[in-house]
Every structure is written in C-alpha cells, then in structure tokens.
C-alpha cells in the first residue's frame, strides 16, 4: 500500500483552477522531488496533503485512509505528516528546546523529561544541540531551518513535506540544511520535497516530477529526468535553473 496516494486532485481559488487533476503515488521510503516554475501550484499541492489547504475534488489517501474520512482526527493526521516551510516559522518566544518539545508534550502527551531527551538527540542529529537554550532570533537561517526540521521530526512523522526549505537561505547555509535532508532520505524517511536544488534531487530522489500550470507535466527518475527531459516546458525550465 502506498504511503500517499493522490487521485485526480482539483482545487480552485475562486475561479482560478490552481490544481488541475493531480494523481501521484508515493511509496513508503520514497523521496519525491517536485519542481516547476513559481506559481505552478507546488506549495498548494503539498499543503493539501496535511490539509493546510482544502480541495474541492479528488481524494488523498494517507496510509490507505482518506484524509477527509470522518474517523480521521486532523490533529493526529498532522502529527504524522511533518512540514518544513520556506520561512522556518519557528516560535520566536520559545527557546530552541521548547520549540521542539511543545507539540510532543501538548499533542502526544509525552512527559517533559522524555520529550527533552528526544529533542536533544534530534538537535544533535541536525548539529545544533549546543544551541538548545537560545532563542530562534539568535540563530542563523540555516540553524533555524535545522531546528524546524528537528521540531517536525520530534512528532515521529511517517512522512515529511518540504516546501522550498532552502530558498530563503544565504547560499553558504544551503548545504547544512540539504545534508540533514539527505541523511533523512537515506534513513528511509518518506519525503516530498519542493525544491530546485538539483544536486539534492540527483543524489537522493527516487523520482522527480515537474509541475506547470497546476498539473504534473513530466515525471522520471532523476538521471533520466535531467538527461532526457521529454516535454518542451521541462526543457525550458531546466535550462533556466541549471
């Protein structure tokens, strides 16, 4: 059974048909990279998966279950699907450690000592355990994004969504975040990554899909995708970003 199965997904903003029938299957442990020009609906698509956006037609199954099924509690669903945003969106009034432990303690009822132990080991994994007691504003962008990843991982999600996690970073900080993501991918995390980092895609993606105008135009394993893009629009796009 696929981890995520999207069928004929349509979404409109008023009259604007932003997602025009997307169907995608993501297997457990698969790493899917989503690229495409700005405004093509990439963010909207992945935000539908954890119901940050509602959609009007189609279905999304998570772990075999329709995410709109009555038996699905939206907060539990979101606990199982982590998301990392372009702008980090850390909680500025809480220390790094508390950013990471808030949801486990309040949503999952993990006790505080246990949550902190897990948080510290996650922070170590992303290389910032020595900053645990600082506030987000005292960290660099790259460090903040790594905290955001640790915050999501603390919920032990089955899937991680990334929405251009490195686009807001200074170039010298991009790799520290990509490396964390690569480690995750190699450890078997199921990931959907909206990114234009083609090195990342080549190294760890199982599949790359190209979106344009609210639809998936082309999809292929990374080698093939970069060597032999079939569609004109894909070629034009790749020419621009490579």
């Amino acid at each position: 059974m696929a981890m995520i199965e999207v069928s004929k997904l349509h979404k409109w903003y008023g009259d604007f048909h932003v997602l025009q029938g997307i169907s995608e299957k993501v297997e457990k442990g698969e790493v899917l990279v989503i690229c495409g020009p700005s405004g093509s609906g990439k963010s909207t698509f992945i935000r539908c998966i954890n119901r940050l956006e509602e959609y009007q037609k189609g279905t999304i199954l998570f772990d075999g279950k329709d995410i709109h099924d009555k038996s699905v509690n939206i907060n539990n669903l979101r606990a199982e699907i982590g998301i990392v945003f372009q702008q980090f969106n850390l909680y500025p009034h809480l220390t790094v450690l508390k950013n990471v432990t808030l949801a486990p303690i309040k949503v999952k009822g993990v006790d505080k000592d246990e949550a902190e132990k897990v948080a510290l080991s996650l922070l170590e994994r992303v290389g910032i355990h020595d900053q645990a007691h600082k506030y987000p504003a005292e960290l660099s962008g790259g460090q903040q994004q790594r905290v955001a990843i640790a915050r999501s991982l603390a919920m032990k999600p089955k899937v991680m969504l990334f929405d251009e996690p490195t686009s807001a970073l200074d170039p010298e900080m991009i790799n520290e975040v990509l490396n964390v993501m690569k480690d995750l991918a190699r450890e078997g995390m199921t990931m959907l990554c909206v990114t234009h980092e083609m090195g990342f895609a080549r190294e760890v993606a199982d599949r790359v899909i190209f979106m344009d105008g609210g639809a998936v135009v082309e999809q292929a394993p990374p080698d093939e995708f970069f060597k032999n893009p079939k569609h004109e629009r894909t070629k034009a796009f790749l020419k621009e970003i490579l």
């Binding site: 954890n50 940050l52 907060n75 539990n76 979101r78 606990a79 998301i83 945003f85 969106n89 850390l90 909680y91 808030l102 949801a103 309040k106 949503v107 999952k108 915050r151 999501s152 919920m155």
Partner: peptide, 8 residues
C-alpha cells in the same frame, strides 16, 4: 499555520 501543521 506552523502550530496547526505540528498537530496543535
């Protein structure tokens, strides 16, 4: 958004 996405 970030809090709701985290399950709160």
């Amino acid at each position: 958004e970030a809090s709701r996405a985290g399950g709160l």
